[in-house]
């Protein structure tokens, strides 16, 4: 329902009275409205849908999610489905 992709904010400016930003998707730069994330800083990641930043990506919680998954690896594997050839 809602394709939204994280990108890095590399510039913040005003346009027609709206807070806007340039967001970098590993080399492709899109112009994005930042009105809904007023506290965002350059260097932070915004999750962007249809040209609007809908939230600031929480980088600590992203790392937390990944580390939870890494701990599953320590679990003594009873039967491992071999999906990696």
């Amino acid at each position: 329902m809602c394709l939204a992709v994280p990108g890095k904010v590399i510039d913040i400016f005003k346009e027609n009275g709206l807070s806007m930003g340039r967001v970098d998707y590993s080399g492709t730069i899109a112009k994005v409205c930042l009105e809904y994330v007023p506290e965002i800083q350059i260097g932070q990641y915004a999750i962007v849908h249809a040209g609007f930043a809908i939230t600031i990506l929480n980088e600590e919680l992203a790392e937390y999610t990944l580390s939870t998954w890494e701990q599953y690896d320590k679990l003594k594997d009873k039967q491992s489905p071999d999906i990696l050839s």
Partner: peptide, 20 residues
């Protein structure tokens, strides 16, 4: 960044183990 890490097949294996 913040996309590829969430497509890592290793995590898929670990979560499937948890589900099993």
């Amino acid at each position: 960044k913040y996309i590829d890490e969430f497509r890592n097949p290793i995590h898929a294996i670990n979560i499937l183990k948890q589900i099993d």
